[in-house]
Simulated assay, not measured.
Amino acid sequence: MSLERQTLGALLRGLRSRNQWTLKEMSEESGIPVSTLSKVEHDRLTLTYDKLLQLSDRLGIPITELFAQPENAEQPVTARRSLGKIDDAVRVKTPNYDYHYLCTELRNKRMIPVVTRIRAKSTKEFGKLVKHPGEEYIYVLQGAIEVHSEFYDPVTLSQGESIYIDSNMGHAYIATDGFDEALVLGVMSSEDSNLIDSLMSLHDDENGA
């Protein structure tokens, strides 16, 4: 049977117990009033993000520990599966790219796989750099591409090479000289469950341009 996530109060009680602190001693160490700590430990109050940062900094512990799962907690098995066949892909065509979205029958995915044929040959032809929530991984299947991004010099990737970027950073992929087009596999990920909507709105912008 899977365990529920520990409350912040339980985590603080465990932390105080490991250090053999009284509430007053923990208050002195953390800079958080005794009354506040007591209410949090009894799950009658929570801490703001600023206070969690203060607790993390003053006690010298990673803030992730304050949100950690119990070590013996089990992750639920969703048993989801989808075969990514190109013939079943959802195709979106824009002036720069020809997208084939895979495994579209799965909703609320943490990753969005897409095979993209890149036709743009220059940043002038491409237009404004695009950006969207999350991160993405691009692997070159055929041809070669030039990756342009907001904070880095352009980089060229040949077949078999790849790149991982922050998608919130403006970016563009274009086919390099010597290739009319290039084919890449991209995997986009985000905590935003509406990532697919963000991507589709970008396609609307591309088609509008």
Rank of each mutant, 00 (worst) to 15 (best):
T7Q: 12
L8W: 02
L8A: 03
L11C: 02
L15C: 09
R16T: 03
S17V: 06
N19Q: 15
T22D: 10
M26W: 07
S27A: 10
E29M: 07
L37T: 02
L45M: 14
L47S: 11
T48Y: 08
Y49L: 12
L52P: 03
L53Y: 06
Q54P: 06
D57A: 10
G60Y: 03
I61T: 13
T64C: 06
E65D: 14
F67T: 10
F67Q: 10
E71L: 13
E71G: 05
N72D: 15
A73P: 02
E74I: 09
E74Q: 14
R81P: 01
R81K: 13
D87W: 09
A89H: 10
A89Y: 11
T94I: 00
P95R: 00
N96W: 01
N96L: 01
Y97N: 04
Y97I: 01
T104R: 03
E105V: 07
L106S: 07
R107G: 08
R107P: 09
N108S: 09
I112L: 10
V115K: 08
R117G: 02
R117T: 03
I118Q: 01
K124D: 08
K124N: 12
G127W: 00
G127H: 01
K128T: 12
V130C: 02
V130L: 05
K131N: 14
E136F: 04
Y139K: 00
Y139V: 03
V140A: 00
Q142A: 12
I145E: 04
I145M: 01
V155S: 09
L157M: 06
G160K: 06
I163A: 01
S167P: 09
G170C: 08
G170N: 08
A172Q: 02
I174T: 12
A175T: 10
F179D: 02
F179K: 06
D180S: 11
L183H: 14
G186R: 07
G186A: 13
S189R: 12
I196M: 05
I196F: 14
L199E: 01
S201E: 15
L202E: 04
L202D: 03
A209R: 15
A209D: 04
